[in-house]
Design a protein around this nucleic acid. Structure first.
Length: 367
DNA sequence: CGGGGTGCTTTCTGGACTGT
DNA sequence: ACAGTCCAGAAAGCACCCCG
């Protein structure tokens, strides 16, 4: 912990505020913006760029640094934000970077990026200045376009390679004790009915390693493809989000979100919410929620999270319920109750390579 | 034939780790 | 003490397709 944080943390503790981690909430971002503005008017420094990117102004650098020191820069920008000073500072740099949030890369942009990288190597700061984007942005973009990356639909061999890669990476990461345990279990039971705890299937996977093993796709492509495969295999190919099931899931999701009544998206426990849809990975629910708000809530970008939930609850929910009732009138329609999340899965239920994964995945109707 | 869904792509964020 | 690097995760968006 940094020395300057000690006093701040003590104060927060006295107020009964716990130190936060994870994503910044809307409130914190607003507070930070306010803090920076206040510090600017306090010191007379012209703008946030000069304050946070002092290197860009060599002539004024010493003056600005002196002002920062004199007026206790760290204490000021961290005011009312219960986090380590450094993280607040880093967040501020991103927020106020004029080269950040520049939107999509055009064809020309990507070409330039490739050329500049071949000239200057991984000097992202320099390249960023050249295409006027943040260094983070260009570094990330380059990692996506570098190498012989395929696009579009995944071939069968690629998919199998991916599954194998994920399995290997997960196994590699397990602790020696866990591996030992697995070994002895395998000896006891030669059938090889090894099990894996649920979370290991989607949390803490090193995607760069997977990328290296798959060779033809970047890590982000691998990750999203894996979620897709995993969802199918975890649910045994049942249509958990189709027709009446989808309607019921949406209704439950809205009601549940309304009940838990959180002020900020990043307080939501998606793991917990997943059980509403069925035995699916948490990221699956997240994308479904995104779709839901994007299609049902007008101007959702301009609304706060509680406002979005209220809208869904008050306006969309009755419509969905009506729709569901109409559909239920038809004979033969039945809602499948979502399967309870299994804490543990068998290895062989998730990692298999023999059959094709596309459409006709063998449906293992379990009664 | 149009809306809901899936599959895939792209951008933004948080934070651990590294180096001076 | 501070800046820079790297990587896992979250959020957003687009294109097509399938089914009622």
């Amino acid at each position: 912990m940094y020395r300057d944080d000690l006093g701040r943390f003590k104060e927060f503790k006295a107020q009964g505020v716990t130190i936060k981690f994870g994503k910044f909430s809307v409130k914190e971002n607003q507070q930070l913006e306010k803090n920076v503005q206040e510090f600017l008017s306090l010191t007379g420094i012209e703008n946030a760029d000069k304050l946070l990117y002092t290197d860009r102004y060599p002539e004024e650098k010493s003056v600005i640094t002196d002002l920062k020191r004199k007026y206790a820069f760290r204490v000021h920008i961290g005011k009312g934000i219960a986090r380590p000073w450094k993280l607040v500072y880093y967040r501020a740099k991103k927020m106020f970077d004029v080269n950040n949030y520049k939107g999509r890369y055009s064809k020309g942009d990507t070409e330039k990026l490739k050329i500049y990288q071949s000239l200057h190597g991984n000097d992202w700061k320099k390249i960023g200045e050249m295409v006027s984007r943040s260094s983070l942005s260009v570094a990330l973009k380059f990692s996506q376009i570098n190498g012989q990356i395929n696009h579009g639909a995944w071939s069968k061999t690629e998919t199998q390679k991916l599954i194998k890669a994920v399995e290997e990476v997960i196994l590699k990461k397990m602790s020696p004790q866990e591996l030992n345990e697995m070994d002895s279990k395998l000896q006891l039971n030669p059938e090889g009915r090894l099990s894996i705890v649920r979370e290991k299937l989607y949390k803490g996977i090193s995607w760069v390693e997977v990328e290296a093993r798959v060779e033809t796709r970047n890590w982000m492509q691998c990750k999203s493809k894996w979620t897709e495969i995993l969802t199918k295999r975890m649910t045994n190919g049942r249509d958990v989000y189709r027709g009446v099931n989808a309607l019921q899931a949406k209704i439950n999701l809205i009601e549940r979100l309304y009940e838990i009544n959180v002020q900020d998206v990043n307080e939501i426990d998606w793991e917990d919410l997943a059980s509403i849809i069925g035995d699916v990975p948490p990221s699956y629910v997240q994308t479904k929620f995104y779709k839901l708000k994007a299609t049902c809530v007008p101007f959702w970008q301009k609304k706060t999270f509680p406002e979005i939930i209220d809208y869904l609850y008050e306006t969309s929910l009755p419509l969905l319920k009506e729709k569901l009732e109409k559909k239920m009138e038809k004979k033969g329609t039945e809602i499948q109750a979502p399967a309870a999340p299994k804490p543990v899965f068998l290895f062989r239920d998730i990692f298999y390579y023999d059959d094709d994964d596309s459409e006709g995945e063998d449906r293992d109707e379990k009664s």
